[in-house]
Design a protein around this nucleic acid. Structure first.
Lengths: 132, 132
DNA sequence: ATCTTCACTATCCATAAGGTGCGTATATAT
DNA sequence: ATATATACGCACCTTATGGATAGTGAAGAT
């Protein structure tokens, strides 16, 4: 019945026990999107990322990078120097994903006005209710 | 400096005040992914969605659909019959997005084994630490 | 009379996300 | 001696999220 849904790989993200479902859960994070997009054009240091991702706290940055490293999307390189120097870069798998996530980001940027309008309309309608 | 990053639309998802940033936040949800993907091939009723999205609670399903409706990605049609009949379908904007989200889902399904392996390796390494 | 269906709505609660601040290590500059 | 820079880890706390459960309404079946 859902042979089309598993995309022919035997995995089905609609099933909560499927490994691809947990992958989707991992990807469902604002900071994962942004970190992967930020690393797309080359390796960056922790501080460089922190400056690029406005509003991220050091904790969330580290947490996100650890998840991405654990899942094989990001490689971490430590230079044994003082003061410490650590660089992050996408693995091949990460680069592969970055293409898609960048498309999502572009979509968000392109359609932000549409969605802003839709939200405004939704608010206007709900406010109109009292007078109905 | 970041002229490439705003994709030429004047929006930059890296800035937390940018409307596109809130769009990205909205998209960063497992259930948003899955509901949009599920509706891709046509309109579905609440119960049909609930059966398709294994593990979703009625609350999360309704909540997700309300967000998608508010943002203009999903259209809701109510048939005034008893028992109630409500159908959901993607708007044009939603269809547009569904293409991308389906790619993400396919990616998750294709690369689930790679990520499973990466996680296993990460665990093996961290367990190896005690013997180091 | 009671049950069933369907699409919710409301409520409570456990967990997770996320923020803040402090500690660590050490070469270099003052 | 003290301060600075860097990239964290750790502990604590507050808030938000998601899940479980129960309730609603109204026609039709039993």
């Amino acid at each position: 019945m859902d042979s089309e849904d598993d995309c022919g790989f035997g995995y089905d993200a609609f099933r909560r026990t499927c490994p691809s479902h947990t992958v989707l859960e991992m990807l469902a994070s604002k900071w994962v999107y942004l970190v992967v997009c930020a690393l797309r054009k080359g390796r960056l240091r922790n501080g460089e990322l922190a400056r690029k991702l406005e509003g991220i706290t050091p904790k969330m940055l580290t947490q996100t990078l650890r998840v991405l490293e654990r899942d094989g999307l990001v490689r971490r390189e430590i230079f044994p120097v003082i003061p410490p120097r650590v660089e992050y870069e996408l693995t091949e798998l990460g680069q592969n994903l970055a293409g898609l996530l960048t498309q999502i980001r572009s979509w968000a940027e392109q359609h932000a006005p549409d969605i802003k309008d839709a939200r405004a309309r939704a608010i206007a309608e709900s406010e109109g209710d009292w007078a109905a």
